[in-house]
Design a protein around this nucleic acid. Structure first.
Lengths: 252, 252
DNA sequence: CTCCAACCTCACGTTACGGGAGAGTCAAGC
DNA sequence: GCTTGACTCTCCCGTAACGTGAGGTTGGAG
């Protein structure tokens, strides 16, 4: 079975020009041509293209990919194994970025100032990246964008005042509850934790139980957050942490 | 507090040239200059740079980033929320790719032929990507690379024969165990599951319990794998699945 | 036999910088 | 106060990985 450029381009999700380019630079030359000069790709070519796309996704230049793929010591399995490893690392890195974002969101909410170094910590050791179509189409005037903008992003000053007030009140209630000696995993504390989660979901972003416990961990693990909550009341950071966890476990 | 290009470049992990470029195209112009013409970046500039880098990581062009960041309707929180969402989607996509790789590795091992469409399914809707330094440095002659190459990638024909034999033997023992009526979550089945995992770890790639259960799920969920194992013996796919899961639960 | 879609080969344009030239600037040490 | 090495400035040309036609050929459905 052999395929034309158009077909290959179609199910590989690249343009015909890209395939022409790969042919030009010798990265992927179709193993055959029709007598009229049409490119004909066979299954082996497709396998190579697949490898190319994975490595490209992982940020290698076409030159590097050529060297990698033409290494006689590495077979298909070795490539897959390698790609698996690199992908996993990349996911870990992106997860760190997600954490950093959650941190920044929370920091901004309570007004903690980040130093420039802190802002860029997560960018420690990588370079640009592309996402293209999907992201492009999403931004602009898609439904998802309007939805997210509808939910937040343009509150009035009064809204912000209300949000702050709500939060302040909530804080007072937590402190009062702590003073009353109620346990952090009791029903009242859990109720307050749930309110906190819903407050975030309503005004900021959808806060799942997972994200919420992530925040709770942050309150304890990060000295800036800990200092912030401890300055309100001694033991508050841990109390919040425990209440949020108890709540998440019960409801999830 | 204000910073020079060099400082900013340093803790943002970009080159000075990049910052010059962003200034040229008006994406990020330092809010001040010294009387001798030196660029001076303040905290607001850094915040903007941080946003730029996140969006860049997410694959937006500099043009698009400019439009996005200059949207008066979106504040810092809105950007963070949006970035969080996009990052999560991206992670999901990469996880799908990891799954696809695991699938391809397993398929190649047992000799299942993939159609071109199947090969590219995961590339459905995105474009190039870069990873740069980290990946570049890793490839070539780093310790990690040599390590992985040492472990696999250049077996002799005899090695391959041994691997195949080992696998065949193992398969026969599983079938025999099934015939004997032993339960899939019994100690013998679990032992065979563990051997399977170690076989993969030894010859192919490090197969964690998590990956192993992923494979088990694949045996049931994917009709090609199911057909493959069912053709050996009816009920084998599920038997393997259950044994691997039982083993993973016990040992983990 | 006729189309139109798909293919071909140039060939110039674009994005996001890299890298160097040539010249001015800053701060630490003598 | 002077040197000197690291840092900065503004051109400006180079590169990678394609995008985007221009102008011409082919192939298969009707």
């Amino acid at each position: 079975m052999s395929y034309t450029v158009g077909k290959v381009a179609e199910f590989a999700g690249v343009t015909v020009r890209t395939l022409h380019h790969y042919d030009e630079i010798g990265l992927l030359s179709p193993s055959d041509r029709s007598r009229t000069g049409y490119r004909r790709y066979d299954d082996a070519d497709l396998l190579r293209l697949q490898q190319i796309m994975y490595y490209r996704e992982l940020g290698f230049s076409l030159d590097e990919i050529a060297t990698i793929l033409d290494d006689p010591h590495a077979d298909a399995q070795a490539h897959l194994r390698r790609q698996h490893e690199l992908l996993s690392e990349r996911i870990t890195k992106l997860q760190k970025m997600v954490y950093a974002i959650e941190f920044a969101m929370e920091a901004e909410k309570v007004g903690i100032q980040l130093t420039p170094q802190e802002r860029f910590e997560v960018f420690g050791d990588f370079d640009p990246d592309k996402h293209a179509e999907e992201a492009k189409e999403r931004w602009g005037d898609t439904e998802a964008y309007r939805e997210s903008m509808r939910r937040a992003g343009r509150y009035t000053k009064e809204d912000w005042q209300r949000i702050k007030d709500e939060m302040t009140q909530w804080g007072e209630r937590v402190v009062a509850l702590m003073d009353s000696g109620a346990p952090a995993d009791g029903p009242d504390a859990m109720q307050l934790a749930e309110e906190h989660r819903q407050h975030i979901s309503q005004w900021y972003y959808e806060c799942t139980y997972e994200i919420h416990t992530g925040l709770a961990d942050m309150y304890l693990a990060d000295e800036r957050f800990e200092a912030f909550y401890e300055s309100i009341k001694t033991g508050l950071a841990r109390y919040l942490h425990d209440a949020i966890h108890a709540n998440a476990i019960m409801r999830a």
